[in-house]
């Protein structure tokens, strides 16, 4: 078991920016469902679903969190991919369907609050999180709260209007939360297997990032479905994302292992991070004849 270190005694928060798209109209679910990898036809009010958009080669082009809120779909995606994804959503609207697409970039932000202890997060929020599910938003004053299921730590995501963020931060800082830097956030996400833009934007297949559970091969056609179905039926996935550790330094980049296979480091804290590695490699492998890394599944 790889152990990472960040100051565990306090509760941290990190502000994340996403692309924000709102889709409304009676055909909005049907329309979005044709584009994404998962099936949201049965999405319920306040439910949050993870999904992907892939290209015709089956490679990920955006990672989405889709929520149904008061009859509208709130779609959070990778900020850098906002325009491309929205073009896809707009261009695929059928002339006879009731779908309206709105750009909400900058209007909403997500604050992730995390700690080693569940009680700490509850105290910061002033709301008990142990009874919350991890699929549905809870409405609390002007914000929406979603508990995030993690391997080691406890985290909630707060969806809030950008205009209201200052007063919210004042409240949680008053309760003891500390703003964390990018390095601390990366440590948290690497320890808990949370993928981010660094992984999603590298043109990987869903299976290579361990995201098979948000790919529904029975829902019908979507871009990339043919490739995903073929991979599933023939079992030919050749590489997968792993968490690595090394005694030396291994930065983001592509390396060759001693067996001549590629090792693509997508996120790195220096001596630990995520890398996409051939499934034929052992759990310990050498790079350039000297750097020994050990790996484990997320």
């Amino acid at each position: 078991m790889i152990k990472l270190q960040y100051k565990s005694s306090c509760c941290r928060y990190y502000i994340r920016e996403h692309s924000v798209t709102v889709v409304e109209g009676k055909d909005s679910v049907k329309h979005i469902n044709r584009i994404i990898t998962s099936n949201i036809t049965e999405i319920k009010d306040l439910e949050n679903c993870k999904s992907l958009i892939c290209d015709a080669n089956g490679k990920i082009t955006d990672a989405l969190e889709i929520s149904s809120i008061s009859g509208q779909l709130l779609i959070l995606g990778i900020k850098e991919n906002a325009e491309k994804t929205r073009e896809l959503i707009v261009s695929g609207t059928h002339w006879n369907e009731d779908v309206k697409i709105m750009n909400g970039d900058g209007a909403l932000k997500i604050i992730s609050i995390f700690a080693k202890n569940q009680e700490q997060v509850s105290n910061i929020l002033g709301t008990e999180i142990s009874t919350m599910g991890d699929d549905f938003w809870i409405i609390e004053n002007d914000s929406y709260i979603l508990k995030v299921k993690l391997k080691n730590d406890y985290q909630v995501n707060i969806l809030i209007q950008t205009d209201l963020i200052d007063s919210f931060i004042n409240t949680i800082e008053g309760n003891g939360a500390e703003l964390c830097d990018e390095g601390t956030w990366d440590t948290h996400r690497i320890e808990n297997g949370i993928l981010d833009n660094e992984e999603y934007n590298q043109g990987f297949l869903p299976g290579e990032l361990g995201l098979d559970e948000i790919v529904d091969l029975k829902k019908g056609c979507y871009p990339g479905q043919e490739i995903h179905a073929r991979l599933e039926s023939r079992g030919k996935l050749s590489k997968k994302i792993m968490r690595f550790r090394t005694d030396s330094r291994l930065d983001v980049g592509t390396y060759l292992s001693n067996t001549g296979r590629k090792v693509r480091v997508t996120s790195s804290l220096g001596n630990q991070g995520f890398a996409v590695i051939s499934l034929k490699e052992n759990s310990e492998l050498k790079i350039n004849d000297e750097l020994l890394i050990s790996t484990e599944e997320l």
Partner: peptide
């Protein structure tokens, strides 16, 4: 295809409501 963003305030009233009635409008694409 090419797109434009048109700001039509009233169309996003429902969305304002779900975030506590704080009141903001979203541009329609």
């Amino acid at each position: 295809r090419k797109y434009t963003i048109v700001h039509i305030g009233l169309l996003s009233q429902g969305f304002m409501g779900i975030l506590g009635g704080g009141g903001f409008t979203l541009p329609v694409i």
